[in-house]
Amino acid sequence: MSTNQPPSGDPAPPRRGKIAERLLPGGTEPDPRFTLANERTFLAWIRTSLALLAGGIAIEAFTADLFLEPVRKGLAVLLLLLGMLLSAGAAVRWIRVERSMRNKTPLPLPLIVPLLAGAGALAAAVVLVFILWR
C-alpha cells in the first residue's frame, strides 16, 4: 500500500484482546519478557503432555502380546488421562501466573508438577510389576 505513514512516534500499546480482558483483568502490563517466558513454559508442558498422549496410544498397540488386555488398556488410559490433565493444568497455570504477574503477587506453586511425578511413578510401578510377574 502506498499510504506511507511516517514512523509513528507515539508508542501506541497493542490493544488487548477480548479474551485477555476477561481472563486477565486488572493489574498492570507485566514485563513482556516475563509474558513470553510464561508462554514458553506453557509450551514445554504441552510438549510433555503430547509425549504422554503419543505414549498412551502406542503402549496399547505396542504391548499387545506383552501385557494382558486390562493392564494394557489401564496403562494407556492412565497415560492419556495424565496428558489431558497436564495440558488443561498447563493452561490454568499459565493464566494464574499471568494474573499474579499483572497484580505483582507471588507466583503460584505448580500443582501439575506433583501430578506428573505421581502419575509417572504410578505408571512405571505398574509396568515394573507386570514385567516381573509376567
Binding site: I19, P32, S49
Partner: peptide, 25 residues
Amino acid sequence: GITHETVDADTSAVLWTASAAVALG
C-alpha cells in the same frame, strides 16, 4: 511488544493449544 515494553498475552493461542491437547487425550 519488546520494542514497546508491553506485549499482549496470547490468551487465545494458549487456550486453543491446550484444548487441542485435551481433545487428543
